[in-house]
């Protein structure tokens, strides 16, 4: 059976020689390893890519094939960019759930104890998870948005209702698809750390992103018109919309507000993570 003669260098030498210790860069590498070593992550990311690309192209095709039956009003407000990016609405489910799981998955399995004993200052873990998952989402979803845009416009060109990146606001909107999903990812990470349970985190995230706008819609219109633009979903989605209503905050103002919501949640997560017993 195994003995301890092969336990490695004598006690203490390992530490002294190599300058081992926790740094933010090392925690980033560790979180990257964690992210890529779970099959569920890979499947969810793959699903998000397929949603953005396939749904965007499919809906663009459907719009083009029914263009002749569309009413003049619908034709006037038709947004070819947003149409080709419609898969973003579905992809936010996959990205948001994965974001929540970054922490809730660790709380659920007990992994968080190993993580926090390795990094007792805790905050480097929050930053590392946010950066790693944020960057992965940004890269994959920006590329997916561009593919969806190109594919979608190809579908729309059959009716000459397509647009190009050169048109005002279009390039911003296509980058916006990736940016919006990146902030959804960060909202998920923060909520996972705050709520700790997967079900609770997902319910909160999509309660705010999907259900809250519906409820606000039931309010008297003089109220809802004043509230709706400031909801996280409306503010965030301004950036990948080119043809927008007058009440919208505009792409960058809206997006900054959306980032502000994420920043507040991340700050709350930092405070709670630091204080709470793990």
């Amino acid at each position: 059976m195994t003995t301890l003669t092969d336990v490695g260098p004598a006690r203490g030498e390992l530490t002294a020689q190599a300058g081992y210790g926790v740094t933010q860069r090392r925690v980033l590498l560790s979180e990257w390893t964690k992210l890529r070593s779970l099959r569920s992550t890979l499947f969810s990311l793959l699903a998000a890519i397929v949603f953005v690309v396939a749904l965007g192209i499919l809906i663009s095709w459907a719009q083009a094939s029914h263009w002749d039956q569309e009413s003049p009003i619908d034709r006037l407000t038709f947004d070819p960019t947003n149409t080709s990016l419609s898969g973003v609405f579905l992809a936010q489910l996959a990205i948001g759930v994965l974001g929540v799981l970054m922490f809730s998955g660790e709380y659920g399995t007990g992994m968080i104890r190993a993580t926090i004993t390795a990094v007792p200052h805790r905050l480097p873990v929050l930053w590392a998870k946010s950066i790693v998952f944020g960057v992965v989402t940004l890269v994959l979803m920006t590329v997916s948005s561009f593919v969806a845009f190109v594919g979608g416009q190809a579908m729309l060109s059959s009716k000459h209702i397509d647009t190009t990146l050169g048109h005002p606001g279009v390039l911003t909107a296509v980058f916006g698809g990736g940016l919006y999903l990146t902030v959804v990812a960060l909202l998920g990470v923060a909520l996972g750390a705050l709520v700790r349970s997967t079900a609770g985190g997902i319910a909160t995230l999509f309660g705010v992103l999907l259900i809250l706008p519906l409820i606000v819609n039931f309010l008297p219109s003089s109220w809802s018109n004043n509230i709706d633009p400031y909801l996280p979903s409306s503010a965030g989605q301004d950036i990948f919309t080119v043809v927008r209503d007058s009440s919208s905050l505009g792409p960058w103002t809206g997006f900054l507000l959306f980032c502000g919501y994420a920043a507040v949640l991340l700050a709350a997560a930092a405070v709670v993570l630091r204080r709470r017993d793990a």
Partner: peptide, 15 residues
Amino acid sequence: SVHTGRSAYNHLLAL
């Protein structure tokens, strides 16, 4: 204190 979906090797590597 282990994520059930990760291999033993990757668990230890991440730590």
